[in-house]
Design a protein around this nucleic acid. Structure first.
Lengths: 108, 108
DNA sequence: TTATTTAATCGTAATATTGCAATATTTAAA
DNA sequence: TTTAAATATTGCAATATTACGATTAAATAA
């Protein structure tokens, strides 16, 4: 026990859950917001923007990258991270559809 | 360590993260999808629809409720759960804005 | 070559999550 | 009242996440 029963759900359900999960931490939301604020992908100063140690930030970046939410290229000693429009779009489309369906729902 | 440093982030960041986190499990996505499918809120049969034991499903429902994603009323021995439009809307608006900003981003 | 800088990885402690059996609770039916 | 049903809660084991110090790796600067 303790491990998620991934193979009992559809690929789609796992995909959405994975993206949502990666965004389910305030530090990672803060990273996303910082990336949007600077409006570019040279982000070597992310560590200074967050109340967390460098290895922790690195780990959060890794998770965002693993979920496909950000993409990064090595650029000398610095790194170039930016938001991957595509993956955020998947989530956005998903929730837009939910909103549409819910609005037509006859409920409590 | 191991606990999220919630108080180091803004209320907004924690709010978004909390909603996203609650959706970060395939079982909870499956619950949402089932609620949408039946298009009503009488959902006593959710347990039969999921590959999980009754206490586990109950726990997932509790988490969705705690995050404000679903709302529920007791209805005899059954329970009446349905999606809370408002909270899903918060997430949807948030990602819509991200998408807009990202599209204008000059990046890699 | 030898610092220096920057980010990733390793190792580990603390805490949280997942899942379920057993049990409790609550309401309706017999 | 007793029984049956549906859902919640408790307790616990297995696993995952969070956070960070120490270290490593890689690239540039001196």
């Amino acid at each position: 026990m303790g491990a998620t029963k991934t193979d009992h759900f559809t690929e789609r359900q796992n995909q959405i859950a994975k993206i949502a999960k990666a965004l389910g931490h305030p530090a990672r939301i803060a990273i996303i917001e910082y990336l949007l604020k600077v409006n570019t992908c040279i982000c070597g100063d992310i560590v200074n923007e967050l109340p967390l140690a460098q290895p922790t930030v690195s780990q959060h970046l890794k998770e965002l990258k693993n979920a496909g939410i950000i993409k990064g290229n090595i650029e000398g000693t610095a790194i170039c991270y930016c938001i991957d429009e595509k993956v955020v779009g998947i989530l956005n489309d998903y929730f837009s559809k939910i909103i549409l369906t819910v609005t037509n729902q006859k409920c409590c």
